[in-house]
Amino acid sequence: MMPAGAQSVRAGPAPFLYPVRRHGVRALGSLRRVAARLAAEPVGAAAAAAVLAYVAGAVLAPVLAPDNPSATDLGARLAAPSAAHWFGTDLLGRDIFSRTLYGARVSLLVGALTVGLSALIGTALGMAGAYYRGAVDLVGARAVELLQAFPYLIFAVAMMAFLGPGFWNLIWALALKGWIEFYRLARGETLTQSHREYVEAARAMGYPSSWILVSEILPNILNTVTVVALLRLGYFMVLEASLSFLGVGIPPSIPAWGSMINDGRNVLFVAWWVSTIPGLALLVLVLAVNLLGDRVREILDPHASRR
């Protein structure tokens, strides 16, 4: 949340150019502040470094991976970790190190796209509902009530059962319920903000409501939305892996950690590495993301985490 002074009314000309520049500077400023504070504390720095390492591994997978992740080699089935295969091989002789690198792409991409889509839909609907009230608000509230009746994993599994496996199907199945948290957050925040003086002032000066929402209110709730998005990211990655583990998530042709863990289930006692290693990769990533979210919340919103 911004300090009160930053929200003072800015009278004067050129309201359409000035605020855009100001928001760019403000966003960059808080990003720098977060980065600097993170670098100063060991846990935050380690978490951020781990997440960056995963992102780098995922992006550079084609360069870093020693093997084609889908290339089978039946002569080298279930080979134990060695110099040739750092993480061993699976039932079809595929190199698990390469598959783990490529699997990071799925986890990060599905997690980020789901969070992004959920945040976008939820924030837009929540802000519109709180500001315009009426029909928008009513429809949103009913939809939230209905979606809340389903436990998340059950909802996602059912959606995938009827839609069929697929990358985008999975993201939609997750985001279709994921937006409600952002909706409630944005709605509540917008309700509080819309009674603040700077909004009243903007209204009195005759700005259109869409401009007030996007240029005045949105920058003031963006920090909170970002924190919640970060805190949800790990959860979405676990959900994706759970669905892929059950066989209703990512199609088997794409290497994903969830389905890799499932591949190793029947050979657990013969070849422990097949299930264990992708699971460890997932655990460390989710842990790092959750730690990072925790830290960023403390930096951006010291009030909420004083407990």
Partner: peptide
């Protein structure tokens, strides 16, 4: 508790099978 909350349940179950049960 942070570790537990980040733990994928299915993987934890497999680890339990691997270490405790067999």
């Amino acid at each position: 508790s942070l570790l537990g909350a980040s733990m994928p349940a299915f993987w934890f179950g497999l680890l339990l099978i691997l270490f405790v049960a067999v």
